[in-house]
Simulated assay, not measured.
Amino acid sequence: VLYQTVLALACVLFLGSKANRTLEFAAESADFDRIMATVEPAQRALAINADSGSPASGVPNQYDHHALWYQAEHRGFVDFNFAWYPPQ
């Protein structure tokens, strides 16, 4: 019973930390979501990342391709991306 309790507690703590990071990232990227709600569809856009790291998610290049959501959701065109290359 002790091992099961420790294992269950470890799982809860692990999932809790992941949920916390997800909520922090959502708060961190909320400005981008507001911008995406106001842009016109089917336009050209330029993505300039001064700092592509994300302290909330802990990923050093989290925002490298974040602007491509405009291309995916609003049928726009964002500057050069790796989708230019055919699949390997």
Rank of each mutant, 00 (worst) to 15 (best):
V1R: 08
V1Q: 06
V1E: 06
L2P: 01
Y3P: 01
Q4S: 03
T5F: 05
T5N: 05
A8Y: 11
A8D: 10
L9D: 12
L9N: 13
A10Q: 13
C11H: 09
C11S: 14
C11W: 09
C11A: 14
V12I: 14
F14G: 03
L15F: 15
L15K: 04
S17K: 05
S17T: 10
S17A: 08
A19V: 08
N20I: 05
T22K: 13
E24M: 13
E24S: 06
A26I: 10
A27L: 13
A27N: 11
S29E: 05
A30L: 03
F32K: 00
D33F: 05
D33A: 13
R34Y: 07
I35Q: 12
A37H: 07
A37L: 09
T38M: 10
V39T: 15
E40A: 10
A42K: 14
R44C: 09
R44F: 12
A45I: 04
A45D: 01
L46K: 09
L46Y: 11
A47D: 04
N49L: 04
D51E: 10
D51L: 02
D51R: 08
S52A: 13
G53M: 01
G53P: 00
S54L: 02
A56L: 02
A56D: 01
S57A: 09
G58F: 01
N61E: 15
N61K: 12
Q62N: 13
Q62C: 07
Q62M: 15
D64Y: 03
H65C: 13
H65A: 12
H65K: 09
H66M: 11
H66V: 08
L68S: 05
L68V: 02
L68H: 11
W69V: 05
Y70T: 06
Y70M: 15
Y70H: 14
Y70P: 00
Y70R: 02
Y70L: 15
Q71P: 01
Q71N: 10
A72V: 03
A72M: 07
E73T: 06
E73I: 05
E73V: 03
E73P: 00
E73L: 11
R75C: 03
R75H: 04
G76I: 02
G76H: 00
F77R: 09
F77L: 08
D79R: 05
F82E: 09
A83S: 12
W84E: 09
W84N: 07
W84R: 06
Y85I: 08
P86T: 07
P87Q: 13
Q88H: 15
